[in-house]
Write a protein that binds this DNA or RNA. Structure first.
Length: 287
DNA sequence: ATGGCCGTTTGAAACGGA
């Protein structure tokens, strides 16, 4: 079993007391973090030792104060790419994506721009950024999982009350269309396909007891290509991590894949027929 | 009751978040 998780931690500095116990409890093999809000050197100084001692390699794309993404992996970490080629900035590039190949799967940790107000400059930036992300994913034929905070609720079923969001970002047709276009390159919404009709949220406003009333949105997604999606054994939101003291306002999303037979976490590759064992050649041990 | 919280830089209060 291979466990992939994504979590918008809303400041990794503030979340250290929650992040490390969570890693020990859930033992994810690959972790995509968003909103680390920390430069790479500061991240390394804060957590480098604690992550390496737990067996994780780290790919960082951070900046001071805002944004910031990371991938932690103990399934391999190769071909690290910071950012999305051709993605716009606001006005300068922001640290919103990092990707790497982990055990044969191309993993993205993305923090999609918020959009702020429909039709604002920031909203146009959000849509253009998603277009660039789609192009990058489409250009690669690799088995891929795009994890992160998309700042889009895919449908009205993904918000506690559609009427509460009228006129707001995250639910507008253009944002949903951009997400549909992204999925159109061959990505499945793993959690929604696993729980087609259930009430599933990943974000709850800190205010007004929204979490305890379960008034949230599902905006943190795991999008996987077909070969990966077909290996999903479990997919769930770790609400436990949203409870208690000093939580992020987002909960982690956790996806378990069955193991590939070659020990990689990547797609199942059939063995060459020349080396395939002859039928009937293997005898089970006798009792 | 149309706000409520949290994190950032700062050194009181604005801004961003969703």
């Amino acid at each position: 079993m291979v466990r992939i998780a994504t979590w918008n931690v809303n400041s990794v500095k503030q979340r250290v007391p929650r992040l490390l116990p969570w890693l020990d409890e859930r033992k994810p093999d690959v972790v995509c973090l968003q909103e680390t809000k920390l430069g790479n050197d500061a991240f390394e100084g804060l957590l480098g030792k604690d992550l390496r001692s737990r067996g994780y390699e780290v790919a960082l794309h951070g900046e001071a104060q805002w944004n910031g993404v990371a991938i932690l992996s103990r399934a391999g970490l190769e071909e690290v790419c910071q950012g999305v080629p051709g993605a716009p900035g606001f006005p300068n590039p922001e640290a919103r994506a990092v990707s790497a190949t982990c055990g044969g799967i191309r993993i993205y940790s993305v923090y999609v721009p918020n959009g702020r107000v429909p039709d604002s400059d920031h909203y146009q930036y959000k849509l253009a950024w998603l277009t660039a992300l789609r192009a990058a994913v489409a250009a690669s034929g690799a088995a891929t999982v795009v994890c992160g905070d998309f700042n889009i609720a895919p449908t009205d079923e993904d918000v506690f009350d559609p009427l509460a969001y009228v006129g707001q970002t995250h639910v507008t047709p253009a944002e949903r269309a951009a997400l549909t276009e992204l999925k159109g390159v061959g990505l499945h919404d793993v959690v929604r396909e696993h729980w087609p009709t259930q009430r599933v949220f990943t974000y709850w406003d800190y205010r007004a007891g929204m979490f305890h009333k379960d008034l949230g949105m599902r905006i943190d997604l795991v999008l996987a290509t077909e070969g990966v999606n077909s290996r999903v054994q479990a997919a769930w939101v770790d609400r436990q991590a949203r409870k208690g003291t000093l939580p992020s306002d987002h909960a982690p999303v956790i996806v378990d894949l069955d193991e590939a037979p070659d020990g990689n976490i990547g797609p199942v590759v059939p063995p060459p027929s020349a080396t395939a064992p002859k039928r009937g050649a293997f005898k089970l041990p006798q009792a």
